[in-house]
Design a protein around this nucleic acid. Sequence first.
DNA 1: ACCTGAACACCGTTCAAGT
DNA 2: ACCTGAACACCGTTCAAGT
Lengths: 222, 222
Amino acid sequence: MAAPSAKTDRKKGRLTRERVVREAVALADAHGIAALSMRKLADRLGVEAMSLYHHVANKDAILDAMVDFAFGEISLPRADENWKAAMRTRAIAARTMLRSHPWALGLLDSRRNPGPATLRHHDAVIGCLRANGFSVARTAHAYSVLDSYIYGFVLQELNLPFDTPDDLAALAETMLQHLPADTYPHLAEMTREHVLQPGYAYGDEFTVGLDLILDGLDRNDD
Amino acid sequence: MAAPSAKTDRKKGRLTRERVVREAVALADAHGIAALSMRKLADRLGVEAMSLYHHVANKDAILDAMVDFAFGEISLPRADENWKAAMRTRAIAARTMLRSHPWALGLLDSRRNPGPATLRHHDAVIGCLRANGFSVARTAHAYSVLDSYIYGFVLQELNLPFDTPDDLAALAETMLQHLPADTYPHLAEMTREHVLQPGYAYGDEFTVGLDLILDGLDRNDD
DNA sequence: ACCTGAACACCGTTCAAGT
DNA sequence: ACCTGAACACCGTTCAAGT
């Protein structure tokens, strides 16, 4: 019997822009953004690459839509919430989203066309701060420092060259051996006395820095 | 007369790993990381693409070396400096570097092999904080929140869809017309009353957030 | 209206062949 | 030792042709 062709066992039904975007997200989640090619995406949808161009202008339009899809996953802060609790919750939700779609942060770089979910998200965050008495300028300060922190934290987190505590321990041990302690004494100390301690997880730093920033914003009520 | 071939007017002399990396940085600075292909890089060096493989293992090794080159441009904090001033200076220097090599931030994502300049940099930052009486844990907190902020701020800054105040004004006007104010009222207000005000520059937010974080670290002297 | 096959101008990398 | 030409297995996108 013939091996099932890639096409036969793929989803059938008419192609739509929405199906294209959803499948692109699934492909990038599963195999990384580098694996997202028009040919592979088409194959998953049971069509040829060229068919995609009937539903999206080009690959860039798919990437725009993927970012907007990801933003849509962050639930919106309400204007009647206390700002500090609302911003804390939003920051954690944003981090969760960016971790579950590791391609999203990298795509932010090149996106020039914010979609409706992205705009709605920004509008809700600004609205919550304004409703809590923040001036326009203080709202801009708060949004800038919070988003910078969230994006940068996840960027570092996604870069970590290990996925589990065991990986980390193994890597740190190797590093300690390869990095002569006299060349990088402080890096060696940090590895030995902090990173290699039981229970260490870099992700725990997230709320430490987040609360430092929220407290700072609370104090600067200009 | 014949048009000068791409090769004839390129730098001559023996190929070295250092020349390959330096030229890769120049190419990426000038035309973006997407334009950095082995073929184009070789052409700039007056050789064929395949010659590069005698000096670097593959393209990934070039990207690793580029990131380390970029880190090498940030001058190191000294252990005898006041931590707050030293961290402020370093943050500004890091932002300057990341802005002048817009490809660097995107490459951080995928780099798994920190080079000597990168390690030296981290060692110096940790060393300065420790010399100022920071505990190992407080050093880790400080480094995490500062680098997250710096990386995230530049990520947002590089994403801004305008390069000059004039571009910004033009874009904001178009946005105000395209975004119905009743759908995104707070975004419209922020654009009108903040972004479109004379003298506005997003980059000015950098030190606002930075000082908020430095003051927060100063207070948490646990 | 929607899908496709062939083609174009690219990639990174391998390999055997040149000097 | 160092460089290269041809080749392989890919890209995104165009165009004219099919249904």
